[in-house]
Amino acid sequence: MLTKEFLSEKLSAGFPELKFEFSEFRDEITVKLSKSFIVTVCDYLKNTEGLQFNYLEDITAIDWARKKERFEVVYILFSIDLKQRLKVKVGVEEKDAKVDSVSVIWKAANWFERETYDMYGITFNDHPDLRRMYMPEEFQHHPLRKDYPLMGHPGDLSLPQK
């Protein structure tokens, strides 16, 4: 079972100069870090003995609406060998909604990042194929943002002629 102490020890051994925020809720550990180091930290998490997070379960974002760091991108990692789970978070500001893509580490990240881009409008640098996942290509909004209404704006999406 992964503990906060073990994780923080491992991470500070690998990245002595970086600051990590740890939180725990219902036995689930979340670690938050600065977005510019996400690729190197993920690479470390995947390839370090005792962590071995070789399986990416999901990538998503949270829209906090009124915070200064409006978005948070969440990576849910799992280790198939050690059966442990970890959530990694990075904060993203609305003006600079760009994060480095982790699809070089896990191929699964490709579609997850496309989905996050579609739903929240966060772009991923060096992504191999960043297109919309679900919505039609001519759609101009990002529906899971809190300022997009549940029913959408009338006329956002076209209907065929009757």
Partner: peptide, 14 residues
């Protein structure tokens, strides 16, 4: 009742 769903197909089909 959400943004991507057509609220009744009679909007474009008989």
């Amino acid at each position: 009742r959400s943004y991507p769903v057509v609220q009744g197909i009679d909007q474009f089909l008989p």
